[in-house]
Simulated assay, not measured.
Amino acid sequence: MGAMPNQHEFPEVSTVWLRAFLEVARHGSFTGAGRALGWTQSAVSRQIATLEAALGGAPLFDRLPRGVRLTEAGRVLVPYAEAVAESLHDAVRELAAVREVTGGRLRFGAFATADAGLVPQALAVFRARRPRVRVTREEGLTPALLERLAAGHLDLAVVSTTGRAPLESYELHHLLDESLYVAVPAAHRLARHEGPVRLGELADADWISGSSRPEGTLLDAALRQGFRPRVAHVVGEWTAKQGYVAAGLGVALVPALAAGSVRPDVRLVPVLDEGGPARAVYAATVRGRSLSPAGEEFLGALRAAVVSVSSSPTMA
Rank of each mutant, 00 (worst) to 15 (best):
S160A: 12
L95V: 00
R93C: 07
A124Q: 10
Y181P: 02
A186W: 05
V269N: 04
P59K: 04
D265Y: 05
L123N: 06
V307Y: 00
L154H: 06
M1D: 08
S160W: 02
M315V: 06
S311H: 09
A144D: 14
T285V: 11
R148D: 12
T40H: 09
P11K: 05
H188A: 06
T142W: 05
S87I: 00
E201K: 04
S42V: 12
R127F: 00
L70F: 03
L51I: 01
S29K: 05
A259C: 13
L37K: 09
R303M: 07
A247T: 07
E9C: 00
A112S: 15
A258N: 12
P196A: 15
V286A: 11
G236H: 12
T217W: 11
V125H: 12
D206I: 01
G288S: 06
A304P: 00
L180R: 07
P293Q: 02
M1E: 11
D90N: 09
F126K: 02
H153F: 03
K241E: 13
A203F: 10
L176R: 15
V234Y: 03
V231L: 05
H153M: 09
T136K: 11
R137F: 09
V24E: 05
L257V: 13
R127T: 09
L291T: 11
H89Q: 15
H89R: 15
A83Q: 10
T285F: 11
M1V: 14
E201A: 14
P120D: 11
